[in-house]
Amino acid sequence: MTEHDAAQAIAADPEHVRGLLRQMVRVRRLEEQCVELYSAAKIRGFLHVYIGEEAVAAGVMSALRADDAVVATYREHGHALLRGVSASAIMAEMYGHAEGCCRGRGGSMHLFDAATRFYGGNAIVAGGLPLAVGLALADRMSGRDRVTVCFFGEGAMAEGEFHESLNLAALWGLPVLFCCENNLYAMGTALDRSESQTDMALKASAYEVSAWAVDGMDVLAVEEAARRAVDAVRAGGGPHFLELRTYRFRAHSMFDPELYREKAEVERWMERDPIALLRTALEASGELAADQWDALEREVGAEMAAAVEFAEGGTLEPVEKLTRFVYSEREPTARESGDRAPGVRGSR
C-alpha cells in the first residue's frame, strides 16, 4: 500500500486503524512476555514466536465474522489472541495449567478454542489444511455461508497435503481462504533451497484458485486483501489464496541458533517492522498523539501483566485426570442420536 493509500485509509477510519495497531502490539507484547517466561523456565517445550509477522494475523482476523473458522499452525499465539482467546487463557495454557484454554493438554503449539471456532494449533506442517477443507465442506453441505481461514507457512507448500487440499477445495468450490505466511524459511531451510517454484501465488494458481501476493508487513494491505478474498469466498467464489510476504524476526524456536541466515538480512527486514510502519503512518497523519501511544502501551502492558498473574495463580490438573479427553466422556445411546444438535460439542 502506498503512503497515499495508507493516509486515505487512516483518514477514513482512524479509530479502526488504531485498533489494528493495538492488535499487533498485543501480539508482540504477549510473545515478548512468553520469551521472557521461557528463559525463566516458566514455559517449556517448544515455543515459536510470531514476532515480525503480526500484520498477517491482525489483518486477516479483522476481515472475519464471529462464526467463521480459523485453522492455524504451531506459531499461533497471535492468531488465537486476535481471534478472541484471552491472553490469560493462552498464558495459563503455556504454563501447563488447568485454567489454560486446553487445560494444559496442548501447550504453546496446540491452542484451541471452541467458542471462537479456533481449530488450533496444528504442529504437523500442512496437517491443518485438510481439516480446513473439511470444515468448509460441512458448511457447504449444510448451506451455511461461513468461511474457513487456514494459515500455514510456505514450507507447507512442499508437502503433499497442501496439494491434496488445494485440489479438493478447488474441485469442490469450497469456502476456504488459504493464507500462506511466507516468512522465507521452513525452520532453517530457505525457500529457494527447498522449492522449485518460489512464487507461492503462482504455485497455488495451478489449481485454478484465485491467488495473489500481499505485503505481509503492511497490515492495511493485508486487511484489504483479506476482506476482498473473504468476501469473494463467502459469495461463493470458491477457495482463494493469499501469499503474505513477511519475515520472522526471532529464531524459529527457542532452540534455534540461527546459523542459516545473516544478521544483516534480519536487520533489513526489521526496518519494515509492521508495528513501526503503522505507528509512523498514524503519526504522520496526526492520528496518533504521543499520549495515545503511551496509553495503548500501558493498557496492553496491563493486559499482559494480568495474564501472567492469572497463569501464575493457576492450578495443576490433578494427575488422576490424566486420561480424560482420550475419549468423550459420555457414551451416546441409540435414542439420543436423532436429537443431537449438529455442530461442535465438547465432552462433558
Binding site: L131, G134, L135, L137, A138, M141, S142, P342, G343
Partner: peptide, 12 residues
C-alpha cells in the same frame, strides 16, 4: 481423510 475429520468437526 483429513477433510472427513474437518467435516466431523463442522457437525457432519
Amino acid at each position: 481423510v483429513g477433510a472427513g475429520i474437518g467435516a466431523a468437526l463442522g457437525g457432519m
